[in-house]
Every structure is written in structure tokens, then in C-alpha cells.
């Protein structure tokens, strides 16, 4: 809304006033201008709205509709079953495993990546030789395609693969595990790979946040006799609050919807036993592979509702101050 106001161009005002300088004319000129403003708004937003409706809202509506049918994807859906697919999902122990795995990834990512990223970001924010190289290296895993990373780690972690060989050659043969085959271990292996991949993203966000912390404040604290650690603890980190919260938000949503890495790195058998399934892989396994299209749509709706509610709660309680104005109206 505000953006349309700001794009008002000087040429437009002049050409749109056909009437004379009397009062009625001025009023009609104002009306014409208002009308023109609306044309602009409609014209500029229509393509985006059309695409959003066509490719986001309509498919979502269809997903809800299909989820109410027992439907194998052959012919139109005809067998209405109400909420049966939803009940079936919550009765399936594998789906509950998938929910648990998603929870592990959400909280695991926050608890592991957060401190690591903060530490590395604070370190990389200091001036030292080769800082640019380190910054680059830390960010490389995030830039790689998720599927590439997944296949790479699958090969590294396979039985008697590179990781095992490395451990043995370092005399740590006792640490060798069936990283991707041990049903109790596999989700933690995947969490480690995810951490490796996504910690770079957190670091870059935090570094950007750190560059916004005014030097005056840290200098003032230093003059007051604060140690480096005290400055970080009491000045820098509190000022990083908005950045940290935005990162937490993005990390949480990404973790709830995680699919590619799990799909590529862990094999179908381990997924179908529940050991490494997430809601998204469960949806594809059941929707496409078992051809339970109605059921798959129900799982998609559940995934959407969980992500949506989590996002709303997060915005309501943690992001409220940070996004004031952007969503809730004019700032200040």
C-alpha cells in the first residue's frame, strides 16, 4: 500500500485534470487522481496476486479438498471419507515418528547451530589476517545444492566409507558406527549433516547483524573498562536480538519442511521404518509411492497447519517488536 503511494509520478498529476481551476473542478481532479491511484495499485499488484492465487492459494484449497477423499489418483476423487485420512495419520506410528524427527531437527538446529554460529560470528567479526577466506569457507556448505551435499555425505558415511576409514586411521576405530543404518542413530547423523550445511547461513546473518552494531557503543564500553567478553555479553549480543530471532524463525520453518537432504541421504527402508522420516518425506512416500493421494494431501495439510501455527506463534510472541510496521501497519 505504502509503496504505491510513493511511486506517484510528477507527470501524472498534470495530465489528469481536464476541468478548470474552479472548486468543482478541483474536487473532480482529486477524484480522478484517487481513481488513477487505484488503477496503479490494481495494475501493479494484479500479476503478483494472480500468480499467488493460482499457484499458492488455489492448490492449497485443492489439497484440503482432496484430503477429504479416499483417492488413489486414478480418475476423479469420488469416495468422500470426511476426516478419516487425518485420523489415520495420527494413528500411524510412522507418522508420529516423523513428527518426533521434525521436532528433533527444529530444536536440535536451534540449540546446536545457534551457539556455534554466534561464537564463530563474533570471532569472524574481529580483524585478523585471512578473515575473508574464513568467512568464505564457513559459507560454502550453505551455497552448495542440498542434493549435492546429501549425496556427498551419504558416500562419506556409508559403511566402511571415508568417515569410518578416517576414524580408524586416527586410532579411533571404536567410534565407527553404522551412521546411516543404525535406526537409533540415523536421525542424529542427519542432524549433524544439516548443522554442517546450515550453520553458515546463521553465521552470515549474524555477521550482517554485527555490522549494524555501532562502533561507538563498543568503544564507549571499552573506555569504561569492559573486557572484550563483557562487551560481547552486554552490548553486542543484546543488539543482535532481532537478527537472532529472524534466524530462529527461518531455521524453524526450514526444519519443519525439511525434505531434500533426508530424501537423498537416508535410504527408503530407513525412512519407512520411521527412523529418518520427516513429515515431508512421509507425505511423498505415502502420497506418490503408496499412491494414497487423498491421504498424502491430508498429511500436506497437517504439515501446513503445524508450520502456519508455529509461524504465527513465533511472530506473535518473539518477532513482534522486530517486524512492527512491516506487517502490522505504519511504524511509529
Amino acid at each position: 500500500m505504502t509503496s504505491a503511494n510513493q511511486i506517484r509520478m510528477p507527470a501524472g498529476g498534470a495530465s489528469a485534470s481536464p476541468a478548470g481551476p474552479d472548486g468543482a473542478g478541483r474536487a473532480s481532479a482529486r477524484r480522478a487522481e484517487t481513481r488513477r491511484k487505484w488503477y496503479e495499485i490494481i495494475g501493479l499488484t494484479t500479476p503478483a496476486v494472480v500468480i499467488y492465487v493460482m499457484f499458492v492459494l488455489v492448490p492449497m484449497g485443492f489439497a484440503v479438498y482432496y484430503s477429504l477423499f479416499r483417492w488413489r489418483g486414478v480418475g476423479p476423487p469420488t469416495e468422500f471419507v470426511g476426516l478419516r485420512n487425518y485420523t489415520l495419520a495420527f494413528q500411524d506410528p510412522i507418522f508420529l515418528d516423523a513428527l518426533r524427527n521434525n521436532a528433533i531437527i527444529v530444536f536440535g538446529s536451534l540449540l546446536i547451530q545457534g551457539p556455534i554460529a554466534l561464537g564463530i560470528a563474533l570471532l569472524l567479526n574481529r580483524r585478523f589476517r585471512g578473515r575473508a577466506v574464513f568467512r568464505l569457507l564457513v559459507f560454502v556448505p550453505y551455497v552448495l545444492a542440498e542434493v549435492t551435499v546429501g549425496i556427498m555425505w551419504k558416500l562419506l558415511l556409508t559403511g566402511n566409507g571415508t568417515v569410518d576409514a578416517l576414524l580408524r586411521s586416527l586410532g579411533m576405530g571404536g567410534l565407527v558406527h553404522a551412521w546411516l543404518a543404525d535406526l537409533d542413530l540415523v536421525i542424529w547423523t542427519l542432524l549433524a549433516v544439516l548443522t554442517w550445511k546450515y550453520v553458515g547461513f546463521a553465521i552470515i546473518l549474524l555477521l550482517a547483524g554485527l555490522s549494524n552494531v555501532p562502533d561507538e557503543l563498543t568503544e564507549a564500553a571499552a573506555i569504561d573498562g569492559a573486557s572484550w567478553w563483557q562487551i560481547q555479553r552486554h552490548v553486542t549480543i543484546p543488539l543482535l536480538g532481532p537478527t537472532i530471532r529472524i534466524w530462529m524463525f527461518l531455521s524453524m520453518i526450514g526444519s519443519l519442511q525439511i525434505f531434500d537432504m533426508i530424501w537423498v541421504t537416508s535410504v527408503p527402508a530407513v525412512r519407512s521404518l520411521g527412523a529418518s522420516a520427516t513429515m515431508a518425506t512421509y507425505m511423498v512416500d505415502n502420497g506418490f509411492f503408496a499412491r494414497l493421494w487423498g491421504y498424502g494431501n491430508a498429511v500436506a495439510v497437517i504439515l501446513f497447519v503445524i508450520s502456519f501455527v508455529a509461524a504465527l506463534l513465533f511472530q506473535r510472541f518473539l518477532l513482534r517488536r522486530d517486524i512492527q510496521g512491516a506487517i502490522t501497519g505504519r511504524a511509529k
Binding site: A11, A16, I42, G43, T46, P47, V50, I51
Partner: peptide
């Protein structure tokens, strides 16, 4: 003229969509 051009652009955009 400017308005016309803009209206034309909007129309073109709509048509493309």
C-alpha cells in the same frame, strides 16, 4: 501520455499473466 503509456504497460502485464 505518460498515463496512457503506463496504462498500456499495465494492460500488457495483465495480458501476459
Amino acid at each position: 501520455m505518460a498515463t496512457n503509456r503506463r496504462a498500456g504497460a499495465v494492460l500488457a502485464l495483465l495480458m501476459t499473466s
